[in-house]
Design a protein around this nucleic acid. Structure first.
Lengths: 66, 66
DNA sequence: TGGCCTATTGTTAGGTC
DNA sequence: CGACCTAACAATAGGCC
């Protein structure tokens, strides 16, 4: 999606990785929460930003960025 | 998306939850892998199906359904 | 359950502030 | 870094096998 189609390979630019990370992280967190509610299931999601900052998501609970 | 807009609330029908789980799980797993590759980061995703079957995904590695 | 199909709605790249 | 905008492209609900 987006104005241009991205090839799924490592983005060479750090700032580009951070911007893409922030945007896509929001989308994945949203889908994760929706799935946990729709299907009434447990989901654990832990990811680290390109600079190492962790984000933890436990189902429909508010996600925690440490 | 889809033919009809779904309200984000628990699906009352078990078979419906399983079908939705299967379809959306595939989408989330895809996005998780893309993000780990694009941004060169670590991601851990663990989720349980409506019947309790776990799926573990570690970044770009092939996901493991136990 | 899983794959295919397609109308519809959702996500996001690039840019600006 | 986050919020907002919007054109493009992607995910998916429902249906059928």
């Amino acid at each position: 999606m987006g104005r241009v189609k991205l090839k799924i390979k490592r983005l060479e630019n750090l700032s580009g990785r951070q911007v893409t990370y922030s945007k896509r992280r929001a989308g994945i967190l949203k889908k994760t929460k929706e799935l946990s509610i729709l299907c009434d299931i447990d989901i654990l999601l832990l990811m680290f930003s390109p600079t190492g900052k962790p984000t933890l998501c436990l189902g429909e609970q508010r996600f925690v960025s440490l």
